[in-house]
Design a protein around this nucleic acid. Structure first.
Length: 565
RNA sequence: GCGCCCGUAGCUCAGCUGGAUAGAGCGACGGUUUCCUAAACCGUAGGUCAGACGUUCAAGUCGUCUCGGGCGCACCA
């Protein structure tokens, strides 16, 4: 709990007969700085004391004594408002940030606990489109958020590397691709084979049977099938890795569905032994009607397992292997029902950790005129978007700062940062409409705005050229613009906690916009470097602290913070 | 048909889990540079918080219903 809130709570507790936590819950922050720093609404007291809230507020403000840290207590309407000692507050905040540097915002509540985060998870043999961005970026940010809080994180890329489509691919390859066997295949080639297969199937439906047969062979461990499968996978992974590298996204494991294939039998046996299954329409299902859900299918009528079966097996394996405290699936909201079913089956199997599994869902990305579709070719390739963003940033650098060093590198960091920030700046459950102009807008509430603010601060510090010291007259930082900024810097750790609790990286991006806006206002109103030695030192400390918070925040989102741009 | 999600300024979104006068950005219009990066800053215009009823001292926020949009609902992942 905040030191000042603690003081206020203890003051109030004495005079109100309320419990500590009751008082603390009621404390809020006034909408305007002039009204005070903290406020206590008297409505609930009004009820118990049977007297108007305004009267109680006035009464309380008269009875409560000020302290060193709470220097003024004033009733405004039904609120008792508290004013903190700005000098003490400023000193506390800036010294803390100065001491903790890169660790400001970190915590240890996760120490000894493991969190598994399942994100990105693309299908083999298909390109990464912009619609794959969300899972990867949200997952990566949540990974960083939990890591910041001291959790051990395991990022898993649950590749879509199993299923009948591999039978299709093998058939297509053998029929139309093998004459080019000498050439190095790309995902585009694989994708073309896939498309060709579907075209040809319309003329010749027996191809489907061939495909099923090949998949059966693959499942049975046929060497030729296995080798081709591995080759397709290698080609895809190579391309994926290139894009993950561009985006700065990290995984601890690439473990696809194929990996769990060997465990599925045992999983199904266990579910059967619990008496949860029955046969319906020749398929093996877990009936979930009593829970108002459609059944969970474990086996198709041809005996093959399904997505859900493999997910259950994967969950069991991960629990056994990592003993996680929490497992997060960063997957689109269209799969809500699927995960509800999977978690329910895990629960019915008797696993008490079933409720430690969370589906972190997010809204669809689509075009103005409808859904993105690989089949109709209605996709924007992720790589194209990133390259375009970098190109546009290059043009801007050329126009605004042509003498900049390491232009290429900065353009990359800013261009990619813009794309990441744009995707992480709205709450994840909202659908997003992909719009080139919007993603490639670099003014206002954008990634470049935050990075630019950071670069400006670095520039001041470079000019200053001396070490930053926290031994300054803190009372000099007394302008409204400074106080508002410092208050916001103070919120950073609690913002991270909230983002972790609700799996919401956008809290951090919105917070950063807020901090930058505060800073730019300050920057515009007051000069940092001046002839007044002490004032300069004081403002430099504030500049450095803000720089640090922005850097730490961007780092969590997976965005670089260039020192010049 | 049933279930879940969304609806706040022309557009894109915040709104600190029910509190004081609903805030930003983009776009529009007007302004700021002999001064630390103008990718910035300031100002003006723009709102029946989809609608109705209810709970409450207090509702954009909670509940019910209606309308509008999206997504799911048995052998794809």
């Amino acid at each position: 709990m905040d030191y000042f809130i603690k003081t206020i709570v203890s003051l109030l507790k004495e005079k109100t007969n309320l419990q500590e936590d009751e008082v603390e819950k009621l404390i809020e922050i006034p909408p305007d700085l002039k009204m005070g720093d903290y406020a206590f609404p008297c409505y609930s007291l009004a009820k118990t004391l049977k007297s108007p809230p305004n009267t109680i507020a006035t009464e309380l403000s008269r009875v409560l004594r000020t302290t060193d840290s709470i220097i003024e207590i004033k009733a405004i309407g039904p609120y008792v408002n508290f004013f903190v000692n700005k000098r003490i507050f400023t000193e506390m905040v800036l010294k803390k940030i100065n001491e903790e540097h890169n660790c400001y915002g970190s915590g240890n509540r996760g120490s000894g606990k493991t969190v598994i985060i399942d994100y990105s998870s693309p299908n083999i043999a298909k390109h990464l489109g912009v619609h794959h961005l969300r899972s990867a970026l949200i997952g990566n940010a949540i990974y960083n958020i939990y890591k910041t809080l001291g959790y051990k994180c395991i990022g898993i890329n649950h590749l879509g590397d199993w299923g009948t489509q591999f039978g299709q691919l093998i058939v297509a390859y053998k029929k139309w691709g093998s004459e080019n066997a000498h050439k190095s295949y790309t995902v585009t080639d694989l994708n073309n084979l896939y498309v060709k297969f579907h075209q040809e199937t319309e003329k010749n439906p027996t191809l489907e049977d061939e495909a099923r047969e090949w998949f059966k062979k693959l499942e049975a461990g046929n060497p030729e099938a296995k080798e081709l499968w591995q080759r397709f996978k290698d080609v895809s992974l190579k391309e994926f890795q290139k894009i993950y590298d561009m985006l700065g996204i990290h995984f601890d494991a690439f473990v696809g569905e194929s990996f769990y294939n060997t465990m599925v039998e045992d999983t199904v046996t266990r579910i059967k032994e619990k008496g949860l299954t029955r046969i319906s329409e020749q398929a093996l299902i877990v009936d979930l009607e009593t829970y108002n859900m459609p059944p969970c299918l474990l086996r198709k009528k041809d005996d093959a397992t399904l997505y859900a079966t493999r997910d259950i097996a994967a969950a069991e394996y991960r629990k056994k292997t990592y003993n996680f405290a929490k497992m997060l699936y960063v997957v689109g909201s269209e799969q809500k029902l699927h995960f509800k079913q999977v978690f329910k089956v895990l629960e019915l199997m008797g696993y008490d950790w079933a409720n430690h599994c969370v589906h972190v869902d997010f809204g669809l990305m689509k075009f103005k005129d409808g859904k993105m579709s690989t089949r109709k070719g209605k996709v924007v390739l992720l790589e194209d978007l990133l390259i375009e963003a970098i190109e546009r940033i290059k043009e801007i650098i050329e126009a605004k700062n042509p003498s900049l060093e390491h232009k290429e590198n900065v353009a990359k960091e800013v261009g990619i940062g813009a794309v990441i920030f744009a995707d992480l700046s709205t709450k994840r459950n909202k659908d997003v409409v992909f719009d080139w102009d919007e993603v490639l807008n670099f003014e206002g509430e954008t990634g470049p705005y935050v990075q630019y603010t950071h670069a400006r601060l670095c520039s001041i510090l470079r000019k200053y050229g001396r070490p930053v010291t926290a031994d300054i007259p803190f009372e000099l930082l007394n302008e409204d613009e400074a106080i508002i900024l410092i208050k916001n810097l103070w919120r950073f750790p609690s913002i991270i906690l909230k983002a972790a609790e609700l799996y919401e990286p956008s809290f951090i991006s919105n917070y950063l916009i807020d901090v930058c806006s505060n800073l730019n206002r300050f920057y515009n109103a007051h000069r940092v470097l001046s002839d007044e030695e002490e004032l300069t030192m004081a403002r430099i400390l504030l500049v450095d602290a803000t720089r640090q918070v922005i850097k730490n925040g961007l780092h969590i989102l997976g965005i670089h913070a260039p020192e010049q741009m």
